[in-house]
Simulated assay, not measured.
Amino acid sequence: MGHRRSWRQLTVWLHVLSSAGWMAQAMALCVMLTTGLVTDDPAVRTAATTMSLATDGRLLGPMADVSAFTGIMLAAATPWGFFRHWWVLVKFAVTIVQLYAGIFLLSPQLQASAATGPVPVQVVATALMASAIAFQAWLSIAKPWGPVGRRRRGGTGPAWVFVAAVLGGALDLGLGLVLGHPMPLLSIVLIVVVLARRRTWSAPAAGSRTAAGEPG
Rank of each mutant, 00 (worst) to 15 (best):
G2V: 15
G2K: 13
S6V: 13
S6L: 10
W7C: 02
Q9G: 09
V12E: 05
V12K: 06
V12F: 02
V12M: 03
W13M: 15
L14N: 06
V16H: 01
V16P: 00
L17H: 13
S19F: 02
S19M: 04
W22L: 08
A24E: 06
A24M: 08
V31T: 10
M32P: 00
M32I: 08
L33K: 05
T35D: 13
G36P: 01
G36I: 10
L37M: 04
L37V: 04
V38T: 05
T39L: 10
D40Q: 12
A47G: 13
A48E: 05
T49G: 00
D56G: 14
D56E: 14
G57C: 06
L59D: 00
L59I: 00
L60I: 02
G61H: 01
G61C: 02
P62D: 15
M63D: 12
A64D: 06
A64C: 09
A68S: 05
A68N: 04
G71F: 06
G71I: 09
A76R: 08
A77K: 12
T78Y: 00
T78W: 00
W80S: 13
G81W: 01
F82W: 10
F83A: 11
H85V: 10
H85I: 11
L89K: 09
V90T: 06
V94G: 05
I96K: 10
V97T: 05
A101F: 11
I103C: 02
F104L: 03
S107Q: 03
Q109G: 15
L110G: 00
A114S: 13
G117P: 04
P118L: 12
V121F: 13
Q122T: 06
A125M: 12
T126A: 13
A127M: 03
F135L: 10
F135E: 08
W138Q: 12
I141E: 14
I141T: 14
A142V: 07
P144R: 04
W145P: 03
W145K: 08
V148K: 07
V148Y: 04
R150P: 00
R151E: 00
R151V: 02
R152Q: 14
G154Y: 07
G154F: 05
T156K: 08
P158M: 09
P158V: 13
V163P: 03
V166M: 07
L167A: 11
L167K: 07
L167V: 10
L167P: 07
A170P: 01
D172W: 00
D172K: 03
L173V: 05
G174N: 11
G174V: 11
L175R: 14
L175H: 09
G176D: 10
G176W: 09
G176V: 10
V178W: 13
P182K: 11
P182D: 10
P184M: 09
P184R: 07
L185E: 06
L186F: 01
V194D: 00
R197C: 08
R199Y: 02
T200S: 15
T200E: 15
W201I: 01
A203V: 08
P204W: 02
A206E: 14
A206G: 13
A206S: 15
T210N: 08
A211G: 04
A211C: 02
E214S: 14
